Computed example of a mutant assay.
Amino acid sequence: MRPVLSLALLSVLSLPAAERKAPMSLHDISLNTLDGKPQSLAAYKGKVVLAVNVASECGYTPQYAGLQKLYLEQKERGLVVLGFPCNQFGGQEPGSAAQIESFCQKNYGVTFPLFEKLEVKGANQAPLYQFLTAKHGEPAWNFHKYLVGKDGQVIQAFSSKVAPDSAELKAAIEAALK
């Protein structure tokens, strides 16, 4: 099932990749959740978002536990973690949506929103990642994190090596939540 896109995004997608313009805000984008339901990211207006490309068979996969803990600790203050499965790095997310959901629930108790698989780099880069990477570069691997402010603009990016419980990430989230 393909993501649900606005007419504006559909017109952008009809352009060759080199001519596409990234959306102006995270809130301009709609995608399908992991269970195939359309979800506008405008639902997260006024929240701080940590967008992460995730994978089930990666050396960084244990970060799911830290992301879940961070989400539970900070969601009442306005943080939401959004997981975007991606199979572009070493084929480390080969599963179906149902397999991904089952894996995340069984192994990490994930309750933060997960979306359908997408491409985070290259010619078929999803509009979400066109936006996230426009000023902060493409992910080099799975579990790359983008911190997005309440206004829908990217504040900072963090490499896969930056753990969810790192002082660096926590300080940036704290500043964004104020």
Rank of each mutant, 00 (worst) to 15 (best):
E57T: 03
F131N: 09
G66D: 08
V80F: 01
A157F: 13
A157E: 10
I100P: 09
N124W: 12
I29M: 07
S25P: 10
W141A: 05
R20D: 10
L82C: 05
S14A: 13
A97N: 15
I155C: 05
G59W: 06
K145M: 08
S160D: 10
K69C: 04
Q125C: 15
S30V: 12
S160L: 10
G137Q: 06
D151T: 00
E138D: 14
Q39L: 13
Y129Q: 01
L7H: 06
G137R: 06
T61D: 05
C104P: 08
G66T: 03
A176D: 00
V4Q: 06
Y64L: 07
C86S: 13
F143S: 02
S96A: 09
Q156G: 01
S56R: 03
S40V: 04
V48G: 01
A171R: 09
A18W: 12
L10M: 08
K170I: 12
L72D: 15
E116R: 15
V4N: 01
L67E: 11
S160E: 11
S56Q: 05
A171P: 03
V148L: 09
G46V: 06
F115V: 05
L26V: 04
E57K: 15
V12G: 01
H27E: 04
K45Q: 14
L15V: 00
P94M: 02
V110L: 09
P62N: 09
A140P: 01
D151I: 02
G46H: 07
K45Y: 04
L72K: 14
V154W: 13
E174R: 10
L72V: 07
G90I: 11
H136L: 12
V49I: 15
F115K: 03
K47G: 02
A140K: 15
Y60T: 07
Y71I: 08
A176G: 00
A175W: 05
I29T: 02
Y146A: 02
K135N: 14
E119C: 13
E119V: 12
C104L: 06
L82F: 11
V12R: 13
A55K: 08
S159A: 15
P62H: 04
D151A: 09
V81K: 08
S166I: 12
